[in-house]
């Protein structure tokens, strides 16, 4: 018995150390970037900076504050996440709820399920999608970033399965009490599904925050770019063999500014993450029927 306990303790220690190492490995690059952004350009460019700033300087951050493009892109990203999150979650809920019902109660259910699944398997491709967006006159508007990906079938599946896991008795008793589908969705199913809603909200949010390619394709002005598109344009290394003017050459010297922008862009999502993550903890549903 005693040996079992001590071996368990040993296992705990080993696992803790392994996780600690893993955590540090994940954290090191971030610390390096922070140290880099706080160093003087000359020190940073000579590759001396590892985990602690050398010749401490806040110049890179003051530069960003004065750089109107960064702020503008930041606002576009916030707007995009705000709109995208609310629209996406609403549409997902409204789609997942009926689909979670049995075929007996929702006749064409199978048809619709396959309808959505097919879109998961086949996509129009870049150019056709672009042409659709153009035809709807969405180019260069925030809606081009929000609407095309608003209904994520994967999220619907997630939500749908969660709804199905809810005891049917809850619905039935609500019906008996005279509730309609809207009431059941918003007063019963939704509150019980907060963990999965939080999950898809997190997915959507991170997805919107990180997306950059659509910004580049659909937006016609750099000042309409969301933050990640803007960052992408400043952090990519130019192909040296294609440089044919001095402006491009000079551009590669501002690495402290680039790292500072990466840090600032990271902050919001880091702040939000822990708050949403606690919703991942499940088990809320288990108690609801027994009570």
């Amino acid at each position: 018995m005693g040996s079992k306990k001590s071996s368990q303790q040993l296992a705990t220690i080993v696992i803790s150390i392994a996780m600690l190492v893993l955590g540090i490995v994940c954290l090191l690059p971030v610390i390096h970037i922070i140290a880099f952004s706080l160093s003087s350009p000359a020190a940073a460019n000579s590759g001396k900076v590892l985990l602690w700033p050398i010749e401490f300087s806040l110049d890179a951050y003051t530069y960003i504050m004065d750089e109107p493009k960064f702020g503008k892109s930041f606002l576009v990203s916030l707007e995009r996440v705000g709109l995208g999150l609310s629209i996406s979650c609403l549409l997902t809920l409204l789609t997942a709820y009926p689909l979670s019902k049995e075929s007996a109660r929702f006749r064409s259910r199978t048809f619709y399920v396959w309808f959505f699944v097919t879109t998961m398997l086949f996509s129009g491709g870049l150019i056709p999608t672009y042409m659709v967006v153009r035809a709807y006159g969405l180019l260069d508007t925030i809606w081009a970033l929000v609407l095309p990906g608003a209904v994520q079938v994967f999220n619907i599946t997630l939500m749908l399965n969660f709804f199905r896991g809810l005891p049917k008795e809850l619905d039935e008793s609500a019906f008996v009490d005279g509730a309609g589908h809207w009431t059941i969705l918003f007063r019963i199913s939704l509150p019980l599904s907060l963990p999965s809603l939080a999950t898809i909200a997190l997915f959507t949010m991170v997805g919107h925050w990180n997306a950059w390619f659509d910004g580049l394709i659909y937006m016609n002005r750099p000042e309409h770019y969301p933050l990640q598109t803007y960052l992408q344009t400043i952090v990519t290394n130019p192909d040296m063999s294609r440089i044919t003017n001095f402006a491009e050459l000079k551009n590669i010297s501002t690495r402290t500014v680039k790292t500072a922008q990466i840090i600032v862009a990271m902050l919001p999502i880091i702040v939000v993450y822990p708050f949403l993550q606690r919703f991942f903890v499940k088990g809320i549903v288990l108690g609801s029927v027994k009570g």
């Binding site: 580049l216 394709i217 016609n220 750099p222 130019p238």
Partner: peptide, 18 residues
């Protein structure tokens, strides 16, 4: 449209293909 120099190829390719 206006696009940063290093993304010009991607943007103009989309314009041409569409």
């Amino acid at each position: 449209w206006i696009v940063p120099g290093d993304q010009y190829a991607a943007k103009s390719n989309v314009a041409i293909s569409s």
